[in-house]
Amino acid sequence: MELGPILMNFPRKLRAAVCLLMSLGVSACVSTQPVEPEGPGLVLAEPEQPKARDQFTVAKISQLLSMPDHEDDQRAYLFYQRGVHYDRLGMRWLAQLDFQRALELRPDMPEAYNRLGIYFIQTQQFDDAFEAFDSALELDPEHDYAFLNRGIALYYAGRQDLAISDLEEFLVKDPTDPYRAIWLYLVESELNAEEAKARLLYNRSKLDDSAWATQLADFLLGSINEQTLLSLAQQDWEDNSTLGERLCEAYFYLAKRYLADGKETQALTFLKLTIATNIYEYVEHRFALLELDLLHQRWSDQQGA
């Protein structure tokens, strides 16, 4: 949804306040040193702390929402933006509530449906997730990430064949994006590991060798090992946030590899490390929480059998 046409309908003072919020929405990061390794080859970043600017933005939007006489479009936009900042702060339920409020006021916001669908995946409400992503795609048939997230929902719902179709569509839109190739591989590998690896190798040829995320694909292909991946994560990082983001991703895909190999105890460790980064908005952090729930459910079922 374009911001400009909406802002033009705001009163002048309110437009100024919203523009101030947008300028403050740029994340600020404090440069720190990585935490010393606690074991051979293990590197930790300091957990990401809630950013003051996100908290300030939530407070300012709440103040704007308390002002009377907003049009529905204006209130919907403000609820949506507050939900985005709640999400960055890890306040998932408050974010979900705001996205629902936005859609009640303006039911033609595809991004709000997309974000709601992600929460439904995390709580394993798959039918609600499918409905949310379908709504997003009906409103915006070119919404890339609705294809990704619907594919992930289908994957976790055990419908891999349908998931592959969505993830192929997602990959076609940008074959140079490593994450698109990686998620397609994760789903395909559960159906046919050899064919999935051959396809990832082909897709790897379209990726930039210097990109950090390409190293994740190389790890899944077996071209580099675990220690090399973690070593590469430490190269050319600018601050603790960058290191934390890389480790959030690396630890998640390490966990997925261990799960594929049946090494659930090791996978548990890396899922917890993923979550400990506090990079709440990353897909890897979101679904590490789900993977952890699924792992505990599996262990509980095995004990009850």
Results as ranks from 00 to 15, higher is better:
residue 217 A to D: 08
residue 135 S to H: 01
residue 279 I to E: 14
residue 286 R to W: 05
residue 109 M to R: 05
residue 190 E to Y: 03
residue 228 T to I: 12
residue 195 E to S: 12
residue 118 I to H: 02
residue 41 G to L: 09
residue 114 N to F: 00
residue 234 Q to F: 06
residue 173 K to W: 00
residue 246 R to L: 08
residue 188 E to F: 01
residue 195 E to K: 12
residue 183 W to M: 04
residue 281 E to Q: 05
residue 193 A to G: 02
residue 220 L to S: 01
residue 251 Y to N: 15
residue 17 A to V: 01
residue 175 P to M: 09
residue 262 G to I: 02
residue 114 N to R: 12
residue 272 K to Y: 01
residue 128 D to V: 00
residue 164 I to D: 04
residue 6 I to S: 05
residue 173 K to P: 01
residue 136 A to C: 14
residue 13 K to G: 07
residue 284 E to Y: 07
residue 54 D to H: 15
residue 261 D to R: 15
residue 198 A to D: 14
residue 87 D to L: 08
residue 60 K to C: 10
residue 4 G to D: 12
residue 45 A to R: 00
residue 278 N to Y: 06
residue 235 Q to R: 07
residue 99 F to M: 03
residue 243 L to H: 03
residue 269 T to A: 14
residue 111 E to D: 15
residue 165 S to V: 12
residue 158 G to F: 14
residue 145 Y to L: 07
residue 305 A to S: 05
residue 275 I to H: 06
residue 139 L to D: 07
residue 89 L to H: 08
residue 203 N to L: 09
residue 287 F to T: 01
residue 202 Y to A: 13
residue 170 F to Q: 06
residue 50 P to T: 12
residue 199 R to S: 13
residue 188 E to V: 04
residue 298 R to P: 00
residue 100 Q to M: 11
residue 253 Y to V: 03
residue 78 L to Q: 05
residue 197 K to R: 12
residue 208 D to Y: 06
residue 153 A to V: 00
residue 194 E to Y: 02
